[in-house]
Simulated scan of single mutants.
Amino acid sequence: MRSSGISRARFLAGTAALGVAGAAGPLLSAAPAGASPRPGLTYRGVLYEVTDGENPATGWNAQRMRTDLRAIRNDLHANSVSVWGDGVERLAATATEAAERGLHVWLQPRLGDVPEADILDHLAETGRHAERLRRQGARVHLSVGCEFVLYVPGIVPGDSALERVEYLLNGTFDPVLVQRRLASFVARAAKAGRSVFRGPLTYGAAHEDVVDWDLFDLVSVNYYAYHGSRAGYVRDLRPYLRWGKPVAVTECGTCTYVGAPEQGGMGWNVVDYEKGEIKGDLVRSERAQAAYLTDVFDVFESLGLYAALVYTFSAPDAPHRPDDPPHDLDMATYSLVKTIRDGDPDDPASPWHWEPKESFHALSRHFGRAGRGGGGSGESGGVRGWGEGVE
C-alpha cells in the first residue's frame, strides 16, 4: 500500500461508481457551444508517479526518474508528461527535470486520506513550484487533483480510500449530497490553485463527473471506456467540447491480457491480493493493450482534443514473471513497460529493471509520426499563448 493509503489500481474501481453520481444532473447541461476543434492533439504523453512505494526498491528514486524521463522523451517520443503523486519535493524535482528535458508538464498533487486542509496546503505548495517553473519559461499546467470523491475524506463516508471505494460500490449513498460535497471541494481546490498559479488550471475528473468547468481553463477527463466502434468513443467525448475550452484526456489505458479493454477501469480487478496471484486463467496479451491504445489515440486525434496521456509508465510493485503466469502480476497493470526483478522474484525489495511492452513501441510509432507531421506539436497554439503568459 502506498503512503496515500491505496494504490492507484484500486482507485480505478471507484470510477465505475462515479457514474451514479452523475444522476444528480445532466453532463454539461449548461455548456455553451464551442468552436470547431483543430485536427490532431497538441500534447501526447504518459503519467509518471512520484509517490513512495512499499519499499525503497519500488519507491521514487531520483536516478531512476531521470533515466525514465529520458526514455519518455527520446524513445517514447512523448512531448508531455503528467507528474503525479504526493510529496512536494518529489513532485518538484520530477517536474523540474521533465521541463529541463523540454517536456510539457502536467503537475498534479494527489494527497489522500488526510484532512481537507492538508490536501489544500499540499496543493498550494505544489502550485507555487509550478508557478516558479512557468515564470522560468517552462510549459506547465497545474491540475488541482484527481477524482476527489475517492481521495478526499468527507465527500462520501469512510476513514480511508478503501472504505470510500467500498461505500461507492455498494450503492448506498445519496448522489445529490455527494455531488454537492464534491462541487464544494472542487471550488475550494480551484481557488487554492488560482491563488498561487497564474498558468492554465484544470482538474482530473472521472468520466461522467459533474464539474463546473467555468472554474478552469481546460476540461480534463480520466477515460477508460471501451467501445466496439469509433462512434461510441465519439459519443462519450464530444460533449466535453461544448464548453468551448481545450479538452484533455488526462488518463486512459488498459491492462495486459485478452479481454482487458472490455473491463475498462476495472481491468485491475483480476488479482487475489491476499495470495498475490492472478485469478482465473487469463491469457497475457501485450497486443491487446497496444491495439486499444492506438485505437483510442486515433479517436483523440480525429476529435482535435488538446491532449491525451496514458496511465501509466511503470508499475514496479507488479513484476512480470513470464514463466509463472499465475504470478505474472504485470498482466493486471496499465503500464507501458514491464518490471523485471533481477534477484529473487518473490522478494519485493529485489533490484529490478524495466523493458518496453508492445504498447510502448506502438505509441512510440504513433507519437513519432504525429510529432513529425500530424496534429499539433505542443510548441504553439492551444492553451499556450493565452494561459501561460497571464500575469
Rank of each mutant, 00 (worst) to 15 (best):
L282N: 01
H227N: 09
K275D: 00
K191E: 15
R139W: 01
Y273L: 15
D113W: 01
A31I: 06
V178Y: 00
T202I: 13
L305T: 03
W106L: 15
Y273R: 15
A62L: 13
S80R: 02
L218G: 07
R194L: 02
G137T: 12
I119S: 04
P32G: 15
E286N: 11
V271P: 02
S380C: 13
R132M: 06
L282S: 04
A138N: 04
G373L: 04
L69K: 07
S184G: 14
T250I: 13
R132S: 09
Y226N: 09
Y151R: 11
G265R: 01
Y292T: 11
P239A: 07
E274I: 10
A99K: 03
R64I: 02
L237Q: 06
G378S: 13
P153E: 03
F367R: 04
E355L: 09
Y334H: 03
G385C: 11
E89R: 12
G378K: 10
A31T: 01
G171H: 03
T51C: 08
R66F: 02
Y48N: 12
G387D: 06
H227S: 08
P326W: 08
D159A: 15
R38L: 13
L162N: 11
N61W: 09
G276Y: 10
Y292W: 05
E251S: 08
K191V: 13
A30Y: 09
A288T: 09
G19K: 10
R2D: 14
A30E: 13
D113Q: 14
T126R: 08
P239E: 08
D121G: 04
T256M: 10
P39N: 05
W386T: 15
L177F: 00
T126K: 07
L123H: 02
R38Y: 10
L336T: 04
A189E: 07
L168C: 05
E358K: 10
